[in-house]
Design a protein around this nucleic acid. Sequence first.
RNA 1: CGGGGCGUGGCGCAACGGUGGCGCACGUGCUUUGGGAGCACGAGGCUGUGGGUUCGAAUCCCACCGCCCCGACCA
Length: 572
Amino acid sequence: MRLSQLFFTTLRDDPSDAEMPSHRLLTRAGYVRQLGAGLYSLLPLGFRVTQRVEQVIREEINAIGGQEMEMPVNHPADLWRESGRYDAIGNEMVRFKDRAGRDMVIAMTHEEVVADLLRDIVKSYRQLPLIVYHFQTKFRDEPRSRGGLIRVREFVMKDSYSCDRDEAGLDAAYWAHHGAYTRIFERLGLDAIPVSSDVGMMGGSLAHEFMVLNPYGEDRLVLCEACGYAANQQVAPTTAPEPPADDELPVEEVATPDTTTIDALARFLGIDASRTAKAAFFVTGDGRFVVAIVRGDYDVNETKLVNAIKATGGLRPAQVEEITARGMQPGYGSPIGARDAVVVVDSLAARSRNLVAGANKPGVHLRNVNVPRDYTPDVITDIASVREGDPCPQCGGTVILRNGIEVGNIFKLGTKYTEALGAEYLGEDGERHPIVMGSYGIGLGRNVACVVEAHHDDKGIAWPAEVAPYAAHLVALGGNRDPHVVEVADRLHDAAKAAGDRHEILYDDRDESPGVKFTDAELLGMPWILTVSPRSLAAGGVEVTNRATGEKQVRAVDDVEAFLTGRVPTPA
RNA sequence: CGGGGCGUGGCGCAACGGUGGCGCACGUGCUUUGGGAGCACGAGGCUGUGGGUUCGAAUCCCACCGCCCCGACCA
């Protein structure tokens, strides 16, 4: 591809609204352009990278038996009513009516369509197992997109679906995907860590997210360097040391003016935060009022809380009036004297003796509050978030917390969708059984951005060869003084092109100064930069630079051509 | 949806009550050609939209729209 013809432009200055390196560089180098919040155009270079990523995924999913297909973006709403998600999902799903007035949705994912196809097509156990997948546009009207391509509203996702006779089949398909994902991310040059994760609104029994560590990541990960334990903080169990088994002392009021936070309270009383009980107030999507109690040195983990009380529709923070209406006082709250509230107490807080808790009166706390002597929990379970430095739940070592970006996920769905839609098969036993499903996603654009996050320097991008949009970047200098330069450059460009799409190179044939050409080559990030000039020819051929390492050497034109056409693996 | 910030040629910025400028990019010509070259000439803007204050608004006020960041949310 001749650079003089390519639909792109590079920018000298960083776009003012880009913070992440991937966003900055992909925009500056002419790979993407933003259309609106969470909406990006892929320019030809960006599209080629995405196709490379797509091809890696395709090869690995095919290798575990996946069959590629394509399902629609727009669905009849009735299908989503059958699964119950039409009402369960909030306004991140776009709904509209078609010209006939039929309710429609823009798909966020495709479990319903797959289940609908299964009930139509699969009749017998002989037709299972199956893995089907597609690359398809999703639209999710995120309340807030961010980080360039990291969190967008419209994106292409590889979503695959395993369809099995039973739990054992699902287990095999699940771990087959786990292996395929491991190979995919390795080929993309990403250090992705599988972490156990919440199943969220997908439902199901087991889920992993593949995470790459990144300071801009939206997820908090609990990691143990000693044993390799890795989990999303949303689900990582807390394992604090057992609190002392002190005798229960009598409750007493203590005046604590202006201590509406745990910090202020602990400082005022001169005690450690672990000697206090923290109350948080929520309302569930199904209208229940919840008081959550954790020890003062921990935070409430909303995911665990949602799961503990099966809060359909999630949680929102309670308003002040909702709290006081139930006999509690924000800032000085506890379940003592609470009415019409579901009381959920963290197991560690429940085991800790003689905590300081709110008295539900402004400026007053209670010493020596104990569960269940002083109030009755509805649920006692783990609802606290693991902190950095806590013991590892697996080996007892010390965990660290890091931010991560989710580059892929795998879910055991079970029969949630097939039962709802009646997707059954006739078994060997002559009985009808629901088909057992799994669902597995990888977002393309986010992976492209993560590759840049992992492979760049202060000059620009340095693509791994597997995903580079072009195999090399040919810089021709002094062509107007020396026709031999043009002759050699043209020959290399044509030979690479003739060797096939994977071998094609970018050829900077523009009438630009050497500085501009080198700077752009480093910004664009092809794995090899080939310089042809009177000087390089005098030195014996073509200067070959490894973009990632900066190593340079001059190679004979024939050697370079052998590399570009795939006859030898590397130019060096 | 709450909090904060910002909307001025393609990009980055200035002008902060008195007829909108700079750098880069862009076009033409000449010179230049191994690290974002030089000179000359030139093109490009209802200052996001609407209202208000004022003799006069890019500038002050109000509303709306858009974008970014933090939080809420996140299959």
